[in-house]
Every structure is written in C-alpha cells, then in structure tokens.
Design a protein around this nucleic acid. Structure first.
Length: 194
DNA sequence: TGAGTGATTGACT
DNA sequence: GTCAATCACTCAT
C-alpha cells in the first residue's frame, strides 16, 4: 500500500477510506478509516509541540511509524507518523467502519452494536486490539497494515475534537454522513473542493 | 517528590 | 447536561 505520508495534513485526507488491518493471534480485524486528525510540530495541540520526550519519540521516527499513546488513564490512541524523520508530525485515527473480524471486535469491546465498536479513537484501538506493545512499530513491517480501501469524494473537514489548544485549525477530516464518524458535522464544517 | 493535565469514554442526573 | 475513572508525562517545588 503506497501512500504519500510526507505531510500530515495532506496524509490525513488521503487516509480517509483506506483499510486499516490488524492480524493478531486472536484473528484478523479490519476497518475503513472514516475519520482522522492531523497534528504537526508547529501545532500547540500536538504532543510534539514542546519538543521530543521519551513518550512522543515515535512521532519523530520515519513516516509510517505507529505511535500509540495512553491517555486519561484508560485509553489508547493510534497515530500514523508522517513527514521526514526527526520532524514529529502524525495523523490520529479517530474512527473506522468495521469490515472484517466484527465478532472479534464485539468480543473485545463487550458491545454488540456495530455502530459503537470503532466510532472513537479509544474505541477503535480496543476493537482492533491495538495497545502499547504496538507503539513504535511500522505499518510496512508489523502486524498493523494499510490496504487499498474505498474511494470517496464526500470528505469534509472541521475543527478538531477534544483539544484545548489550536482549536481553530480545520485539520479533522471525515466522510460526510458516515454513521461511524465519532461526532457528526457541526456548524463549523467546511466542504472540501475536489 | 508531588500536583496538574489530558488528541476519552461511559455511566449517571 | 455533568462527572469519575486512572496513568504517563511535565513542570514546579
């Protein structure tokens, strides 16, 4: 799966519709990416804004590195690192549309409603079985990969969610009207020209 | 060494 | 609508 990860904001848009696959010992789970957010080093909301630390070091790795971090004491979030090595930008995967291994996702999440399996950054990592041991692995060599997905023209952007800094940047991308997006369109939504 | 914070979620009012 | 859960990290003693 070739994808241009040289720029996080552009990559966040390119990743919409791609298929995220995880082959684990329990089985395979996969889903289409329906919502992403971009974070760069110039971005006050990014973990890398204040420089490199042991926690965010994977974000300074080569493009395609997977950065999994633990937050709020109980949730993992998954990012795909972008840009040149040493720069520190990434795309947060916020929501998926389940495609394969839905029964395994339901078991991992203890939830049966497919709409609620992967419609949030903490939910999708749980459903896909992604946690800290996958931190600093790479999408081209590890058990987590990207595959060709669906093409969609209905991509919107909006302000990002759940952050307190740089909330004005429209660096959240999602598929219009998709039922698996974590939060539906707000009044700040902007339509992206093709 | 300890307080404050957070790219969240789910339970409860 | 509010709020607790709970931990890695940062920053200030």
């Amino acid at each position: 799966m070739e994808i241009d990860l040289s720029d996080a904001v552009a990559a966040a848009r390119l990743l919409i519709g791609k298929k995220l696959v995880h082959d684990s010992l329990e089985g395979r789970t996969a889903g289409y990416i329906v919502e992403t957010e971009a974070y760069t080093m110039d971005d006050p909301a990014s973990h890398t804004f204040c420089g490199k630390t042991p926690r965010n070091a994977p974000m300074f790795g080569p493009a395609g590195t997977i950065y999994v971090y633990f937050t709020y004491g109980m949730h993992y979030c998954m990012n795909i690192v972008c840009g040149p090595e040493g720069y520190g930008q990434a795309v947060l995967i916020r929501a998926l549309q389940p495609v394969e291994g839905i029964r395994l996702m339901q078991k991992r999440r203890s939830v049966s409603d497919p709409l609620r399996l992967t419609n949030g950054p903490g939910k999708l990592t749980q459903a896909m079985g992604i946690h800290s041991k996958h931190n600093n692995t790479n999408i081209s060599s590890g058990p987590i990969r990207l595959e060709k997905g669906i093409s969609t023209s209905k991509i919107l952007s909006s302000a990002r969610i759940g952050i307190t800094r740089a909330t004005e940047l429209p660096w959240r991308f999602y598929i219009k009207d998709n039922a698996f997006v974590s939060k539906q369109a707000s009044s700040r939504t902007i339509i992206q020209p093709e």
